[in-house]
Design a protein around this nucleic acid. Structure first.
Lengths: 339, 339
DNA sequence: CCTGCGTTCCAAAACGTTTTGGAAAGGATA
DNA sequence: TATCCTTTCCAAAACGTTTTGGAACGCAGG
């Protein structure tokens, strides 16, 4: 059912029907009523493609899933997607999702989205310190918002957890509990957030006068296998750490498993801290101490910011850092050996 | 950069440029080369909206995420999404994702997708026995493919795990191990798959001459909390089951936790079986016996079938049942009390 | 009676493609 | 020379909207 058909039925012009439905003032109330009525009766729904073509916008925002993520490892992403999707849906914007294997194909997918005009704006997730996707979007002048910061030549719109503060706070808390040998299992260093987490950890160490020990620092992919491998290495050193700060809940749960396997009791002999507060964290045994992120809310904000960006809000007004409070559960406790 | 601009640059008509780029034979090789060359030089990419409008298709397929899923509980869905997304991307189709809260808004989202012509086809996930979404799509004559079967008035295109066979096989295996009191924690009964799983379980019991005991049957939402609640109830009955068949790995892991909390050893006193084979399953302690589904592959097939459906393949040729083989790990063993 | 001003309507252009139905030019055939 | 193909090109219509720039009408003020 098209506008033209509705117009013919009513003996009106398409112009009038269009303007009646879109609330213009140059159509009388009586005909407006007739039009709205008829439209509903015949089930008229505007053709989105035609609207978009005419308006010169796609009425959609794009997001790209690097498929590796999807490999079950991180429920995180689905949650983010749902947060974004719900809010966009309310704003009557489509969410166009592309899944591509991480690697060279990734940037191509962005190009296809942008240059084929399938999306008016892009949401970039899991930002890297040097991020070619962001460079590209800046070059093209495409509105975009990122989840996570990056090192860019000009300011960008982003939302991010304040991981530095969170890790500083957690580390400080562990120090307060008497820990001195605190290890960090960090994220891959190309991720911006990896640097933040490490910096927060180092901040707290410095404040307490504890030297950073490279032997207490490991890096891992953000999945459970990565967690077990890194934890295993750290825990089998001759003088092992008394506390483990993990980039991720998934990683932390991997560490927890290794500790159990090695016969190290948590939290008596080893404290473990995660990040994200996935539901799994609360249900682990012992329940995992972690830093909480409200991911769905972050997704929703991301969507709102994208709309704001499309509405012309300046990027400088679209930069948000979210607190990630420490949730102390059972996987942390006083350092062993009664300090 | 539009077709018109390219045409002007070359002193050709848009027709010729269009046809040159689309490989029609009524343009000479020399001009075709010139056109292709110029197009690449100025970075011409066709406007997808214009193409779509003209062709009368959206060049996109839609899928709707009931937001509840996203609640971290089930990595399943992300995996499916990635499988679908990758394949559609290769076919140069967009994937339009809507996230809406489960409930009345859900069907509206389908309507918006279909009637606004945002999608040429729809993928429906997590089918219910009586599924109004499917009824709607049939009524509208929209091509669609489902993940999971449903009770419909006419045949539909679907892909589904053969849960009945899988549950029958697992139950039979437990009986072989000497179990007689085998409980089933099933999915909510409105889901089609719930009936299949129960039927497979009952098939095996019947074959072994064991009567179905309603006290050994519970139903739960497909998340960890549901698993713990149902398992708790079943395990605290006076004569508790010696084996637990779970609708889901997530549910099974919940059950595992409860067993541990109640001091019931697995698998010595209680065998537990899951479904899906999430990576978490292999890493649980003890490692979970489960039925394997290759979800990403299912997603990919779903995408292929959608394309086939758009290409006119009959629904009867687009019905696939996938095996879900039993993966025996450490959470199952001989029935206690030496049968 | 003319002018000016609201009010209400509409024809036509535009968005960027694809496709239809020729047209022009050149060569071969009669 | 007239006719008929081939080859190569193109003008214009179409897809379904939104928007521009009036037009027609009635009415008040002069």
């Amino acid at each position: 059912m098209t506008l033209k058909r509705v117009a013919q039925d009513l003996n009106l012009s398409v112009t009038t029907v269009s303007r009646a439905l879109n609330g213009y003032s140059d159509v009388s109330e009586s005909t407006r009523e007739k039009v709205i009525d008829a439209a509903r009766r015949v089930g008229y729904v505007p053709n989105r493609l035609a609207q978009a073509l005419q308006r010169g916008t796609a009425e959609a925002v794009g997001i790209i899933l690097p498929s590796q993520f999807g490999h079950f490892e991180d429920p995180f992403f689905l949650e983010l997607l749902v947060g974004i999707g719900e809010r966009l849906h309310n704003a009557n914007l489509d969410l166009v999702v592309c899944a591509v294997p991480e690697g060279p194909a990734e940037l191509d997918a962005y190009k296809r989205l942008v240059e084929g005009r399938r999306a008016d704006a892009i949401i970039v997730a899991r930002t890297r310190r040097q991020d070619e996707r962001i460079d590209y979007l800046i070059d093209r002048g495409v509105p975009f918002v990122t989840h996570g910061r990056a090192e860019t030549r000009e300011p960008i719109a982003f939302i991010d957890a304040d991981a530095r503060t969170a890790f500083r706070r957690s580390t400080r808390r562990l120090i307060e509990l008497g820990h001195r040998r605190i290890a960090l299992i960090g994220a891959p260093e190309e991720l911006f957030t990896a640097g933040e987490r490490k910096a927060g950890y180092e901040d707290a160490l410095r404040e307490a006068g504890i030297a950073f020990d490279p032997n207490l620092y490991a890096v891992t992919k953000l999945n459970e296998r990565g967690g077990t491998a890194a934890a295993e290495r750290l825990l089998q050193a001759e003088t092992r750490p008394t506390a483990l700060l993990c980039a991720n809940d998934t990683v932390a749960l991997g560490a927890l498993r290794i500790a159990r396997r090695l016969g190290i009791t948590v939290p008596e002999e080893l404290s473990i801290v995660g990040f994200d507060d996935l539901p799994m964290a609360a249900q682990a045994e012992p329940a995992l101490t972690t830093m909480r992120q409200d991911i769905r809310r972050a997704g929703a904000r991301l969507a709102e910011m994208t709309c704001a960006r499309l509405g012309g809000t300046a990027v400088n007004d679209l930069q948000e850092l979210l607190e990630a409070p420490l949730i102390e559960r059972e996987s942390t406790g006083p350092a062993p050996g009664g300090a």
